[in-house]
Design a protein around this nucleic acid. Structure first.
Lengths: 135, 135
DNA sequence: ATACAAGTTGGAGTGAACTCAAAGTCAAGT
DNA sequence: ACTTGACTTTGAGTTCACTCCAACTTGTAT
């Protein structure tokens, strides 16, 4: 599979794929005689892995660390597990922030829906201290 | 309230607050005679709003747009609602990506837990096409 | 009055993650 | 053989969101 085809499949740019390879977020990709990248099924697996992790906000550097551990063989299972757990923690924190803001937004959107109808914007609820003001 | 106090309350840097004000993510803050920022309750509300939105990954520019609409008065209720809905859509998308990756990670972590015990890494499940490979 | 900490501005610098440009190589069609 | 388009590398440029710096002013404690 050419770089173009992989990019079409995952909706990313060739430069992004080359960048991922350069920084180690995916291992070196198979090449043809002429030196042109020819992605194997395994290469695609790595690409998918990088894209998934990045989609969830895992830093490129962390993805690269994981790839490196995988390449170091069977002695790194525990280290890989720990790294993935760390990534997991980051994602959970991020989701919790999103959940809070979503709750806040839903309330505000509802208030604005009413305001659009009545011409009056009213905050009838007070957000807790660590939530947000009535703006 | 001084900039230092606000920063301690929200665990951010003074430069970040000044930056938010400069780009319009919060409106111009009250000042003392000498020109030193003196955050009112309302100012704090705006600060909280900016921090909440940013925490959920809403771009600074979007926060600034919202603030601008608020400053333009009661004629912008519908526009504000639409902007918040747009922000909401972005957050929901982001959370869905996180949810998927979390599921993926949980499976992999579980596999690695087993691998650490048995010395054998086995993928006994195939991820769907839009999920990710066994890496 | 005088330190000196804390605040101010304008502008420059940083780090992460791409993204683009230039110059050259490879491959497919005519 | 020749053109055309895709791919290659190296290195530079961009965007976002801060973050830092220098020079200066303000406020507080002795």
């Amino acid at each position: 599979m050419t770089i173009r085809e992989v990019c079409e499949k995952y909706h990313i740019l060739p430069d992004t794929l080359r960048y991922y390879e350069r920084v180690g977020a995916i291992p070196a990709v198979n090449r043809t005689e002429g030196g042109i990248r020819d992605y194997s099924e395994e290469d695609m697996g790595w690409v998918e892995n990088a894209i998934c992790m990045r989609n969830a906000g895992v830093p490129v550097e962390m993805v690269a660390s994981y790839v490196k551990l995988c390449q170091q063989g069977d002695g790194t299972f525990a280290a890989r597990r720990d790294l993935l757990k760390e990534a997991r923690t980051g994602i959970v924190k991020q989701m919790e922030k999103c959940r809070k803001e979503l709750e806040r937004l839903d309330y505000k959107i509802e208030r604005y829906e009413t305001a659009v109808e009545t011409g009056q914007l009213v905050w009838d609820r007070t957000f807790a201290e660590d939530a947000c003001g009535q703006t």
